[in-house]
Design a binder for these strands. Structure first.
Length: 304
DNA sequence: AGTAGCACCTGATTGC
DNA sequence: TGCAATCAGGTGCTAC
């Protein structure tokens, strides 16, 4: 569910609350919502309790909060993946005055930051998301590991993913060289987080519509101009969505204050099967590709 | 090495 | 009304 614009909205929302915040207490309500190298929620709790968070960083759909260099926590981060339905919610009340945890609340943290006591909940209906306490590794290229930090390091579980779709130092030519490898259709390549990180099912369909490319066109056959159009379409769609706080269809995606995003109004392909294409008027088609429902205009996105 | 298929979950909606 | 089937923003492991 949450793709790059939604995760970035969450990151920006968390940032002011978690920079310099001390984790005073932790409660894990569902053991499988936390991971640790050696396992066990007790160990997770012991690991993060007493740590000081140093801001919020994102690469692709992965989020993390580095732990400030300080005795046991040096070189570690509290990382998170929202999966299909994860969310962070900030309550500006201390632990004992915060609302009863929601039935989907998997982990609750109490934070102390510049004199204010906060309660930070991690909710996740479908439980594909998780929190993780893990070691930071240096990035292979020495470049900053993620959006929101200058540090050239990423959590171990993030090390395998590709460049962030909004990485300002990434250029269309480099991206298309990465995409062209292999035999799959371009949509499946866009969803492969090792080739480009941050795109999910909504924005893949949206970007392909804007670039007028058929989702099943072999990635290896993309012309240079088509790859360039796609690269820019990915960025402009993601930037527009971010400016509107992301796409919310229901309560499963909201920001840290519980507010929805408004990009659903601007979707031109995703979820519009049977409706008229906004460019040519043909009916938008929907079909399953690689196990994901895929929407495109059969007239202006031709396979070549 | 690259790729397809499936497992991991809960809950809302659809159809009989 | 009840119940089963289907679908949903994602990732990672396994077996080819």
């Amino acid at each position: 569910m949450p793709e790059l614009p939604e995760v970035e909205t969450v990151r920006q929302g968390l940032e002011p609350f978690v920079r310099g915040a001390l984790i005073e207490n932790v409660a894990v309500f569902r053991a499988s919502a936390v991971r640790l190298l050696l396992g066990g929620e007790r160990e997770f709790e012991a690991h993060v309790r007493g740590a000081v968070l140093d801001g919020a960083v994102r690469r692709g759909k992965f989020l993390w909060m580095p732990l400030r260099e300080h005795h046991a926590h040096a070189g570690f981060a509290l990382s998170a993946h929202l999966g299909m339905s994860g969310q962070f919610r900030v309550h500006r009340e201390p632990w004992h005055h915060a609302p009863e945890p929601h039935s989907h609340c998997r982990v609750r943290l109490s934070l102390e930051t510049s004199g204010e006591q906060l309660t930070l909940d991690f909710l996740d209906q479908r439980t594909f998301g998780y929190l993780h306490a893990e070691r930071m590794l240096p990035t292979v290229d020495g470049l900053p590991g993620g959006h929101g930090s200058e540090l050239a390091s990423v959590p171990a579980s993030v090390a395998h993913i590709g460049r962030d779709a909004l990485d300002p130092a990434w250029e269309a030519g480099e991206a298309s060289a990465v995409w062209r490898r292999g035999t799959r259709g371009i949509k499946q390549v866009l969803l492969d987080q090792t080739r480009i990180s941050g795109i999910g099912n909504i924005y893949a369909d949206e970007a392909l519509w804007h670039a007028r490319i058929h989702p099943q066109q072999a990635a290896s056959s993309l012309t240079r101009p088509a790859a360039g159009r796609l690269f820019h379409a990915v960025r402009s769609v993601m930037e527009s969505a971010l400016a509107q706080g992301g796409t919310s269809f229901d309560a499963l995606y909201v920001n840290v204050n519980g507010e929805s995003g408004y990009f659903a109004r601007d979707l031109v392909a995703y979820g519009r099967a049977g409706q008229a294409c906004g460019r040519c008027g043909a009916q938008i088609t929907r079909e399953s590709i690689g196990g994901r429902s895929t929407h495109w205009c059969p007239r202006c996105q031709r396979r070549r």
